[in-house]
Design a protein around this nucleic acid. Structure first.
Lengths: 192, 192, 192, 192
DNA sequence: TATGAATGAGGATTCATTCAT
DNA sequence: CATGAATGAATCCTCATTCAT
């Protein structure tokens, strides 16, 4: 039931955006009475929040293997692997992503995003900590924050705005940026 | 009167966000009747759009000198100057910025942002074109897009999220990223 | 509930006319919330249209027997029978009729009236066609239109304006006019 | 000034109907400030009433010669002359007539119509009285009312609905009806 | 007298939410 | 549990009218 409502809500959100997605419409799309929706969700916002939550969970799940892989290979391959995975998920869920990013307030997004951010943040921190002696500097919080923002915002914009940049070029640029930020000494600068 | 309405609307927007900012509430906050609002704005959305427009105009204006300065100094100083200016404006208007970024739909923001983005995009493109032979590669559109996203999103997040990073460090990181992206060969990697 | 709303709307319409009949007022008069009104009607106009529609349906229903009777008796009795029936209905619903005719725009009335007009128009046409050889002329469309206007407008004005004319005199005059128009040769001119 | 406002109002009424004719729009069309309108009219309704009044006055004026002529010729010619005149005026002012009849409440129309009705009513009464001995009966009020309704409503509907009837046929029918009503004995039944 | 900016009550309509069945 | 009819506060917006200049 929860599933049905959530699926319907996601569908409606994709179709008509946040504004057009009234609870009644969601209920109708789910083949459920408006009353039933409130048996499982206290609020319209809770529905949206849950959808965002799911989306982000999916995101986290789909990234996980790449993250695990990244932990055991060299930084360059690791970053590339993770970015590939990130773009994969985002592209797969681009429609819903657009509906959410475009029409749901940034505040609500941030709220929902917090847990995954924390998890990824931790991962980045750990990874960097394990190679402390190779880093540009040892302000790990600073490195972590910047890398997180870079690997989160730029891919979203890339997927949503579809700039005239080849995917491999985008990944190359972004991984170069990240690597350069963390391990500047070791950087080779291969050009495309 | 336009001013009064706009100021009140900005205030209300800061306080209660787009959703809570009803036209009547804005009118009341402006000490004006609801009807008067519609003598100067066709729409609630026009009010918000105008506020965003103003904010962005201010932004563009405040950045302009830095941009002009950047055009005549070396890349490293140029980027630094511009980033300083960007952070200055954003910090000065942080409260309204937060209200807008957090509560107005990304779609509306993008709409309003388009003209400035175009202008800055042009500036970046020109600057890069002038030094084509020093660049990492000559896909100027690609470089321009990435630099624009970097210098737009990261500073906004920095100002809004207040991560535990010193301003000068943030600027150092970001300008390094930008410079490294554009002129990798010439890069020296001074660490903080 | 539809009934309740419609009844209330008719009452309000009688009291304050189309202009004064706000949806909220109608809802209140029906002892119903404004929202409920919109569960059964898409529009304020739909309510009014439905009321007019009902009134007209009643009209058509109440006329039907007289029409059937008229088809099997001689023209003079037929016309008289129909006119009696017409006056009966109009007088029974005089209050609402007045409210509608007086306060609803002629355009909306015409809109609602179209179907019944078509039906009665057909009836008149058929009846005349069946006695083509007795008619004043064989431009049936012309005869039909004129008779329809005569038997529609004059009775309405009679009921609404209550001129100092006895009902039987009015019917006598009008049926004489109609008969004379259609079958001038056979006309006897009995005077009241 | 009054003239300017009235002309503009008539124009606006023709263009957008009663609903669309806001006082501000009328003022704008007159090239006058909304405030000025209220220097000459207490009310929006007074404007409309005045326009109707003017229209009706025009109507009365244009009919007057025909009425005078009718008084000195035989009934058949008289009726025909008057009906020709009536159709002439109505056709000349058909656009405004439609706007008014279609969109202004019947009550307001009746209100404005009362004086002319009285005048024409008087004329009919006098004319009939002068030939009392030739009439079908001597209930002059009854004859007057019926003739007035016939010569008022049918021509309006004819002009507004444009039924597929030649003008001369319409006039022939209507004058036959009127004559037959008043002087049945003398009636000749010329067929078209 | 003319202006027109300002008014503000009121209108139609929506939609998140409830609750009796 | 599920329903869905009913709710009613709230929304955006209009427009006839006023009044200080």
């Amino acid at each position: 039931m929860v599933e049905r409502i959530l699926d319907a809500a996601a569908r409606v959100l994709e179709e008509v955006g946040y504004h057009g997605a009234s609870t009644n419409r969601i209920a109708a799309a789910a083949g459920v009475s408006p009353g039933s929706v409130y048996q499982y969700f206290t609020d319209k916002d809770e529905i949206v929040a849950t959808i965002i939550g799911r989306l982000i969970e999916d995101f986290a799940e789909d990234i996980a293997p790449a993250l695990r892989h990244a932990a055991i290979v060299d930084p360059a391959s690791g970053v590339r692997t993770v970015l590939e995975a990130v773009l994969d998920v985002l592209e797969r869920r681009a429609v819903l992503l657009r509906a959410l990013v475009d029409r749901v307030s940034a505040a609500d997004q941030a709220e929902a995003l917090r847990p995954v951010r924390a998890r990824i943040s931790d991962f980045i921190y750990q990874t960097l900590a394990a190679q402390r002696e190779m880093l540009a500097h040892d302000d790990l919080d600073r490195l972590t924050w910047t890398i997180l923002e870079l690997t989160q915002h730029l891919p979203v914009r890339y997927v949503l705005d579809r700039p005239p940049i080849a995917r491999q070029d985008f990944i190359a640029d972004l991984s170069r940026i990240v690597l350069d930020l963390a391990y500047p000494q070791t950087l080779v600068h291969p050009q495309t």
